Simulated scan of single mutants.
Amino acid sequence: MRLEDYLVMAAWAVFSVYLYYVYGICISPGIFMHQWDVRYIDFVHILYNMAVGSVLYGSVISLTKTAILLDWLHIFVPQRTRNALAWTIYVLITINCLYYTAGILADIFECMPRKKIWDKTTPGTCINTNAGFVVAAVLNLANDLIILALPQKVIWGLHLTPSKKVGISGMFAIGIFACVCAVARLVYSIKLMHSEDVAYSVSPVGVWSIGEMTSAFLIVGVPSLPRIFKVPWVQSVFTWIQSLTGGSSKGTRESSRKGLPSWYKNAPTARRRQDDVYSELDEYRLEAAEMVYSPHNGITRQNKVEMHSSHM
């Protein structure tokens, strides 16, 4: 297993704990409850779950984004070539780890003693984290946009027909939903910062946070999406759906696909799979061709990446 696989498993474990605390709020006193309708002991429960959830959210996003960037490095940078894309990914991974580590520590040590974060009657001192909260949301959105744009830049620079570029680009465009969730979370975070009804205002922040984390897991799974349709029971489901919708008869091209969607490609041969440096995308093959050119200040090397479909 690769490093990104361990990161995703760790993120799933932390995400499960996050959902446990969200479920605790849903059970008592409930989400979208106005503060004046909540007993103080229940309000303390909300603030406690918010404090723990904030730390867990930062952990999940940090782990998943690092896994996504490592995946992009594996797919779009053949043989770890030190090109502009590779350095961009390395810088993003470094910033991602440092930024979320600092944010998690700030959440943990927001108040001294820490109990004062959720129980305001506890003697102690707290730092004002409102400005940092908004800045963190803005940086998080910027990070999402960059991660969304990285594969698109590579895909649209490949020598493929426009229809194939659109198809591959669409697979990696799931990140748009992550950006939408990040924007919504930023908007509601600003409202929460200025709201006196914390119990109510924190609810949409939590909902959009779940959406953002869920979309991050979907992005991680994009390179493995074609493999899903090779699972026998998945093929059976598509065949069953086709029979219900009046699919084509035997012997046609559609029936030979056993009910699979039109964009599904057959599994590559063993020889092709061995030569494929981009094994995460089974239906396409990326080949790296090395090109030498002579700039003004000397001779340098540059990698030219091309993608060829096996059905072109």
Results as ranks from 00 to 15, higher is better:
L3W: 04
L7H: 07
V8D: 00
A11D: 06
A13H: 01
Y18W: 14
L19A: 08
Y20K: 06
Y21N: 10
Y21R: 13
G24Y: 05
G24W: 05
I27M: 12
G30H: 09
I31M: 15
Q35N: 10
W36S: 14
R39G: 07
I41C: 00
D42H: 10
A51E: 04
G53D: 05
G53Q: 08
G53E: 02
S54G: 11
S54D: 11
L56G: 03
G58P: 02
G58Q: 10
G58M: 04
K65A: 01
I68S: 06
I68T: 10
L69V: 06
L69T: 06
L70H: 09
L70K: 11
D71P: 00
W72V: 06
L73S: 15
I75R: 07
I75V: 15
F76I: 05
V77F: 07
P78M: 07
R82I: 10
N83Q: 05
N83E: 10
T88Q: 04
C97Y: 04
L98C: 14
Y99E: 13
T101G: 15
A106W: 02
F109K: 02
C111N: 06
R114S: 11
K116W: 07
K116H: 12
W118Y: 13
D119P: 09
K120H: 13
K120Q: 12
K120Y: 11
C126W: 06
T129L: 14
A131Q: 12
F133D: 00
V138L: 13
N140D: 15
N140M: 05
A142N: 11
N143Q: 15
D144G: 02
I147L: 06
L148G: 02
V154Q: 14
G157C: 06
K164S: 12
K164E: 14
K165L: 08
I168T: 09
I168Q: 05
M171N: 05
F172E: 04
A173E: 03
I174F: 07
I176C: 04
F177G: 01
C179L: 02
C181E: 03
V183P: 05
R185W: 01
R185H: 01
R185I: 01
I190A: 11
M193G: 00
E196H: 13
A199H: 09
A199K: 05
A199C: 08
V205R: 03
F217K: 07
L218R: 01
L218W: 04
V220T: 09
G221E: 04
V222T: 13
V234G: 00
V234F: 10
S236L: 08
F238Y: 14
F238G: 02
W240M: 04
I241V: 15
S243T: 10
L244K: 15
G246Q: 09
G246D: 04
G246E: 11
G247V: 08
S248I: 00
R253H: 02
E254G: 06
R257V: 08
K258Q: 14
P261T: 08
P261V: 07
N266T: 09
N266C: 01
T269H: 01
T269A: 05
A270R: 14
Q274N: 08
V277R: 12
S279C: 01
S279K: 04
E280I: 00
Y284E: 02
R285F: 07
R285I: 14
L286E: 00
A289L: 11
A289K: 15
H296C: 00
G298Y: 12
R301S: 12
Q302L: 09
N303Y: 01
V305H: 04
E306Y: 12
